[in-house]
Design a protein around this nucleic acid. Structure first.
Lengths: 244, 244
DNA sequence: ACCTGAACACCGTTCAAGT
DNA sequence: ACCTGAACACCGTTCAAGT
């Protein structure tokens, strides 16, 4: 029994190590260079053992994606403690998602690539389960905030019976804004927008559309955005500005 | 001179043929099965000739993506002629983007996969140029509609000096909504929203947030959505419902 | 029970030889 | 000038043999 749990722990640790190595390979040599061969060579294990962890290359991608979601979830957990009005609480989550993509560009690119039925089909069912559960936890966190605000009457009751609709709108806008900004072809349109505030602006448009009080013209949400950064992620942001 | 243009035309036709074959391969055998080997085998040309068209596999992907953007552009061109108020005109474009993803799921998946610096770096500069120019044409079409409505005072003047910001917000919401709905891991949240109207609802929230008149509670935009479908894409939609 | 690495079929890319 | 296809280095996956 104790040997079994020790063994299981060792296996889990080895998996984390392999994921670390995979990220290293991508960051040093680019996405296309992540191969099972190279991952094996960089580790101290054999191909068979690597395949014991990841049933296929797609499964390895999903494992990287799961790592990313786990990091996102822990950032969200931290941000949920932010003190502010209900709109600021939502903004904190949008901020968190953007910060994640800035701090972990590799993992962000992986998630984008993984998002396709073709990949999910080749990944192990256990892996898929972890992915959707982690994602769902974050969705529930967002939905919880919306629920509280709805009960207090701080936004339009039009979507009252369909809180998932609101959750989806906020989520889609964050995801869409960040993804286009970071990954799209260099379009002239994108050069004309302020990248530092685009996510905040777009989130504000959505929240105004939901009649979420106080409106963007009644409150200084730029100040909130900076406060979130300073109070929640001083360390991460210092590291980030040092890097570039 | 005439021989040269004839030759150029033949080369262009051959390229379209190769792209057709590539789409066939993906649709019949899945994404991972699209290889230069198989594309060559299915065509009546040799590997060298295929590489004469597509400088690398990434370049082939970008060519597929360019085909998709060309189709989108022609749909947008048709939709720009839709008769209605300025908000309905914007909805028509959102409708067009969703319809494209429904009619061409393969090309949609390709565009998602192509969206990454790693791919752009390996594609030929000429291809990248076509991609961003086609995309920009569509952005300009959207921006033109916003401009007209702004001049008529049909939406908030808050973003007057930054029309690209509004363009980006509408674009990001459409892209984000459709991408998450069609490609994300099967999240419980997504099962609870009405897939048929989610894009319309999310676009409406954004337009309400921009104070674009008439508001969603003052006008029957569900009716508009159906009118767009019926008047613009009766054929495509009939084909689509037949397929499933 | 878990690990190893040789073996296999296939893939992306190149380029000397051909027309 | 354009096309061909053999050749090469590498990749994903499997599985008989080993510990």
């Amino acid at each position: 029994m104790t040997t079994q749990t020790r063994k299981a722990r060792e296996v889990a640790e080895r998996e984390e190590l392999l994921i670390d190595l995979a990220i290293e390979i991508i960051e040093q040599h680019g996405f296309a260079q992540l191969t099972m061969d190279k991952l094996t060579a960089r580790s101290e294990y054999s191909k068979g053992t690597v395949y014991n962890h990841f049933s296929s290359k797609e499964d390895l991608w999903c494992a990287l994606c799961a790592r990313g979601l786990r990091i996102q979830r822990s950032m969200f957990g931290k941000l949920a403690q932010f003190q502010g009005n209900s709109r600021e609480a939502i903004l904190a989550l949008s901020f968190g998602y953007e910060l994640f993509t800035l701090c972990y560009p590799t993992l962000t690119m992986v998630s984008l690539r993984v998002m396709s039925p073709a990949v999910f089909e080749k990944a192990s069912p256990a892996r898929i389960k972890v992915l959707s559960e982690t994602e769902d936890e974050m969705v529930q966190m967002l939905k919880g905030m919306i629920e509280v605000a709805m009960d207090k009457g701080e936004l339009s009751r039009r979507y009252q019976d369909n809180l998932y609709q609101i959750t989806f709108a906020i989520w889609a806008m964050s995801f869409g804004s960040v993804t286009i900004m970071r990954n799209s072809t260099p379009a002239p349109c994108l050069e004309r927008i302020d990248h530092d505030s685009a996510v905040l602006t777009n989130a504000s448009i959505v929240l105004d559309g939901l009649q979420w009080q106080p409106y963007s013209w009644e409150f200084d949400y730029h100040a909130s955005w900076q406060r979130i950064a300073k109070e929640m992620f001083a360390d991460e942001l210092a590291q980030l500005s040092q890097r570039s």
